[in-house]
């Protein structure tokens, strides 16, 4: 296995090149495609506006709930974003070819990078809206928690996205898997932004990234063989 991969790497473009090509292609889908920001960002905006309506008008209540609300919206938005894992390939009908060409680890890396970017944009949009509409606050620790927490979410989401890449069924099931898998990010991401002492929460997020990354890497190849 390792020999085969080493042999392939001599003839093929470098890992970074492959990742860059894949990321560029998927980023275009995220920016312009129906599975990308076109559906997710309006959803997050609607979530923040409706939360202001039902949780208001007490500004203190809005301020308290804002960070957790943003994370909950990001995790919910992650469910449709998981379609990005194979969106470009579905359009071109090239998923089978791609997983034959690119080693699983490289594919996982590329797809997770795209999802991380998409999730980061979603979180930033949600946070910006929460600051504008719900009187929320942005802290350095909160942003660091988003950077760290979304790594683990993106890794798990890539696995779940690949799980559904070849099947039209089970979109609702994805939500049942993604929300629990994102629980550490939801909890620690929310708390790190508001706690006096953010370090333990950031440490929890690093631990989460470590476990989610390693597990995703371990099971991802099995989801690619069809």
């Amino acid at each position: 296995m390792s020999g085969r991969r080493a042999g392939l790497q001599v003839r093929r473009p470098g890992t970074l090149r492959t990742v860059a090509v894949l990321v560029r292609r998927d980023a275009r889908i995220a920016l312009g495609g129906v599975d990308g920001f076109a559906s997710v960002l309006p959803f997050v905006a609607a979530g923040v506006v409706l939360a202001g309506l039902v949780l208001g008008p007490d500004p203190a209540a809005l301020r308290t709930t804002a960070p957790g609300l943003v994370w909950l919206l990001v995790l919910t938005a992650a469910v449709p974003l998981a379609r990005l894992v194979a969106a470009a390939e579905r359009d071109e009908d090239s998923w089978d070819m791609l997983r034959g060409l690119v080693p699983p680890g490289v594919l996982l890396l590329a797809k997770a990078v795209v999802l991380w970017g998409a999730l980061a944009v979603t979180w930033s949009t949600g946070t910006l809206l929460a600051v504008l509409l719900l009187d929320g606050a942005v802290t350095v620790a909160g942003c660091a928690a988003a950077v760290l927490g979304l790594v683990g979410v993106a890794a798990s989401l890539t696995v779940f996205g690949a799980l559904l890449a070849a099947s039209a069924r089970g979109a609702g099931l994805l939500a049942a898997l993604v929300l629990p898998a994102g629980l550490p990010a939801l909890l620690a991401g929310t708390q790190a932004g508001v706690a006096d002492e953010p370090w333990p929460w950031l440490a929890l997020l690093v631990a989460y990234d470590l476990v989610a990354g390693a597990t995703s890497w371990a099971v991802f190849p099995f989801l690619l063989e069809e």
Partner: peptide, 21 residues
């Protein structure tokens, strides 16, 4: 997840991945 695919081996492989996670 177990009920997502009709082919028993495809279903088994996917659910095994989820079973580990």
């Amino acid at each position: 997840v177990r009920r997502m695919a009709d082919d028993p081996h495809v279903a088994a492989r996917r659910s095994a991945a989820v079973g580990v996670v």
